[in-house]
């Protein structure tokens, strides 16, 4: 059996003695080569978990192993497996050039100068930054800065890459570049990627698995397809009727919303026959149907439902 790329066991973090734990007995195992989406609302414990995994924060209890190396006990070996782009951070020095940054971070990760130069050349070329390598990063666009940050995280060719909001603030083209890169990291290079983002379309497109954290615990941890399929057992239907008429009592699960010149009746049902019942009801009242649409829930619907469940339960 393969050693898990990331193995978090019974992780607990309490910032103040006797206070509420930010992370509460959290366990998560990620196999090598997986792209896992690590999602959760603000304050759920994502950042705390990530920082403990990166060795930037000490845990109150529990362990994090990266390719079998305990981050707390064998930090050096664990960090050799790891590269990260942290959210909300510059990640690289803006006063240095792209080239100087990559050489600096390469040497910081224990690479020889020759190895760092060779790898920096390859990364800057792949990211279309070679022509700008001698420009200071502070003068780059947000997308280019993010590319340099990703290149710095990958300079030592780590087996595990943590990307915290890597597409935040990027334009469409830069987002596409970063997404392609993440896909390539996993598909072609066998990297394990832990991805956190609030852009759920990115998760749906890239992630093999999704783990949702709420109140410091893992609420759901499933393959992306399985997670969506579970929710797709109940499709969403939306019926538009003309004007804003008095509606009959709607079947359970349907709600009505007045729009500009129509009324939308929306509901998630397991059996499509319930929709026919609704239409029969509307026709009996003599209401004019304008449209009927069926949609499957996306990852955003799933996430909101899971988080909503947490907030109500």
């Amino acid at each position: 059996m393969n050693t898990p790329a990331i193995e978090i066991t019974g992780l607990t973090k309490t910032y103040r003695p006797g206070g509420e734990p930010a992370v509460d007995d959290l366990s998560l195992t990620v196999e090598p080569g997986t792209v896992i989406g690590f999602l959760g609302p603000n304050g759920a414990g994502k950042t705390t978990t990530i920082k403990i995994a990166a060795g930037l924060l000490s845990a109150t209890a529990g362990t994090v192993r990266l390719n079998g190396h305990d981050v707390a006990a064998r930090r050096s070996a664990a960090m050799a497996q790891f590269g990260a782009v942290l959210e909300g951070s510059r990640n690289v020095y803006w006063t240095l050039t792209a080239w100087q940054n990559l050489i600096y971070f390469g040497r910081l990760k224990g690479m020889t100068r020759a190895a760092a130069r060779s790898r920096a050349t390859a990364l800057l070329t792949e990211l279309d930054l070679w022509e700008r390598r001698d420009d200071t990063v502070g003068g780059f666009s947000r997308g280019m800065q993010q590319k340099v940050a990703i290149a710095a995280a990958l300079i030592a060719d780590p087996a595990i890459v943590l990307l915290d909001e890597p597409t935040l603030g990027l334009d469409v083209a830069a987002t596409r570049t970063v997404k392609n890169w993440i896909a390539e990291l996993s598909n072609d290079r066998g990297k394990t990627v832990l991805l956190t983002t609030h852009q759920l379309d990115v998760v749906e497109e890239l992630c093999d698995r999704v783990a949702v954290i709420r109140a410091g615990r893992i609420a759901t941890d499933l393959p992306t397809g399985e997670l969506l399929a579970g929710f797709r057992l109940r499709d969403t239907y939306e019926v538009h009727v003309e004007g804003h008429p008095d509606l009959p009592v709607l079947p359970a699960g349907f709600t009505a919303t007045a729009e500009a010149d129509t009324t939308a009746i929306t509901g998630r049902v397991a059996d499509p026959r319930e929709v026919y019942d609704l239409i029969d009801l509307l026709r009996a009242r003599g209401l004019v149907l304008r449209s009927l649409t069926q949609s499957q829930p996306g990852i955003e619907d799933v996430f909101l439902t899971l988080v909503g469940d947490a907030r109500h339960g």
Partner: peptide, 17 residues
């Protein structure tokens, strides 16, 4: 700026830095 955390993501002991 947040770049300090990146300087801690190293297999080397922080005393070197």
């Amino acid at each position: 700026s947040g770049v300090l955390e990146q300087t801690y993501l190293t297999p080397l002991p922080s005393v070197v830095v």
